[in-house]
Amino acid sequence: MTTMTMAKALNAGLRKALAAEPKALLAGEDIGKLGGVFRVTEGLQAEFGRDRVIDSPLAESGILGTAVGLALRGYRPVVEIQFDGFVYPAFDQIISQVSRLRFRSGGTASVPIVVRIPYGGSIGAIEHHSESPEAYFAHTPGLKVVSPASPVDAYWMIQQAVAADDPIIFFEPKRRYHDKGEVDLDQQSAELSLFSARVVKPGTHATLLTYGPMVRTCLEAAMLAAEEGRDLEVVDLRSLSPLDDAVILESVRRTGRAIVVHEAVGTLGLGAEIAARIQQNCFYELDAPVLRVTGYDLPYPPSKVEDAYLPDLDRVLDAVDRSLSW
């Protein structure tokens, strides 16, 4: 076991993926010599060369569009979008090309692209550097969307994403880049499939359903709630598209109460889809309506008020109170 940060775990995972798959290559702004603005790709260009770790011109649509061409010729591009709010210039290539080429080709063409996007807030950034755009991509057929919440998941999930034959939008919770955890670099394979959810804390009174940066927040909320005798279950969704219905529904059937927590705005976010699936499948097992704790329906606000905007321990526990007292 090695203790490492999520950023280092991603770096180790990418290194393993590049070594295991000669057709894998990385592209993005500042990822080579600099190692990325978050240093996730540090040292990889020196190790694998400039043909496989490509410093791209500053053009996101160009990064995705050229990745499509490389993928159609058998390569496995892993591209980095520097910050969440910079993915929009590449939106057309992702939505109109990356997601659809397999369908357009009658199921024959493969575009196994991984789009890495550092996302989410709470880092005191200026505008466009704290967004949570995952629902746009989860809404798009042809894409898969995942988000690790811990170093060990980051290490395995990035390798699984590179090996997958479908295009994958890989959301990295940037405020957790420097959180540390145990990673066994000698382990031979991942414990879970890329698209499985995981119960990270079992409980009986209510289920917190969350992913990415909010997993730690929810675990901390569950610890505090335990002091008051409340036994909360925390489910880390890991995969946002497809959703692991089996784990979600099994947990909610058991606890009878569900609260979805995410940083992204509430309206038409992941929480809306999850609430709909729960009420369709667990209607008679529910003891309270499915609640959501999310960012407000605003553009991401200035950093001095982001703490009030983002779900935190208190807002999660407030929702737990409302659910349990229903």
Partner: peptide, 20 residues
């Protein structure tokens, strides 16, 4: 059918030819 989108795909394919 999206105007111009394929020019980037072509550059990516040409980059693949370089690597091939």
């Amino acid at each position: 059918f999206v105007i111009g989108a394929q020019t980037l795909h072509a550059v990516g394919m040409a980059m693949a030819q370089q690597r091939d």
